[in-house]
């Protein structure tokens, strides 16, 4: 891997907490980008607000760190105005699914040629640990002190229903699978959505009984249900355990896409 070349060395050290999973996701994404053979001059990273959205600031390419929730809308302008550019969006669960939910579904519907990588830590990390639309039911956060009472979004189901060409989910444990998924996303014309569940020891882990970073990563691994296994359970009429989430390639299709260079 030569993802090192894609980092701005003069921006280090970074702002992420010790044990944060975001760096893993950024590494996997850059490794996939590097394998594409794309030139740095032709690649643009766009983001909104939050921990995930600081990522483009550490990458040497042109990058647009925008307003909360709006990254996909900004990226749409970049891509349509210059389809020669490869445009990748870094986002998080709060940025994408709460304030930016509308832009997310419309990006999928347009099937605009972007690759969106969501670092889903299931909490608002940067503002100190408030509940997000993906905080699991019962989990503690500073705004759900008695446990989250709401049902979380399934971001991948949302992307599939809204029309994205490629949808995949992995975790910070599954680095090789994630890297491959991002690469397929980059190769696929149209809207590609890759959700990466990540540990957030500072805001999520310490409130939810993950005393060590590794405990949380192990939780993500143990509660990942491979797509093939999930399909088998469904075919056999067996229930999928409520605390499990499906990982793998969840959609891959060839709907007409917007912003693809003719």
């Amino acid at each position: 891997m030569s993802f090192d070349d894609w980092y701005r060395q003069d921006r280090l050290p970074h702002i992420y907490c010790a044990g944060c999973g975001n760096g893993t996701i950024i590494n996997c994404t850059l490794a996939a980008v590097d394998q594409m053979g794309w030139k740095k001059d032709d690649t643009v990273f766009v983001s909104g607000i939050g921990c995930s959205s600081r990522a483009p600031g550490y990458i040497v390419t042109d990058s647009l760190h925008t307003t909360h929730g709006r990254a996909i809308a900004f990226a749409t302008g970049v891509k349509l105005a210059n389809p020669d550019l490869h445009v990748i969006v870094f986002t998080g669960d709060g940025d994408l699914a709460a304030i930016g939910g509308n832009h997310f579904i419309h990006g999928c519907r347009r099937n605009i040629d972007l690759t969106v990588v969501c670092m889903n830590n299931q909490i608002y990390g940067m503002t100190g640990g408030q509940g997000s639309p993906t905080t699991p039911k019962g989990c503690l956060s500073s705004t759900t002190p008695a446990g989250c009472a709401e049902m979380p979004f399934d971001l991948c189901e949302l992307a599939i229903a809204a029309g994205a060409n490629y949808v995949s989910r992995w975790t910070s444990y599954h680095v090789k699978e994630l890297e491959k998924a991002v690469k397929v996303g980059l190769e696929t014309p149209g809207f590609s959505f890759i959700e990466a569940l990540v540990q957030c020891p500072t805001a999520f882990g310490r409130r939810n009984k993950f005393r060590q970073v590794a405990d949380h990563v192990e939780y993500l691994r143990a509660h990942s249900l491979l797509k093939a296994k999930s399909d088998r359970l469904l075919a056999e009429g067996k229930p999928i355990p409520e605390d499990m989430f499906v990982v793998g390639e969840l959609a891959r299709r060839n709907r007409p896409a917007l912003g693809v260079k003719p």
Partner: peptide, 14 residues
Amino acid sequence: IAGIASIIGASWTG
């Protein structure tokens, strides 16, 4: 919101 976001993004490509 998306309208103005798109024109800002487009502007950065010239």
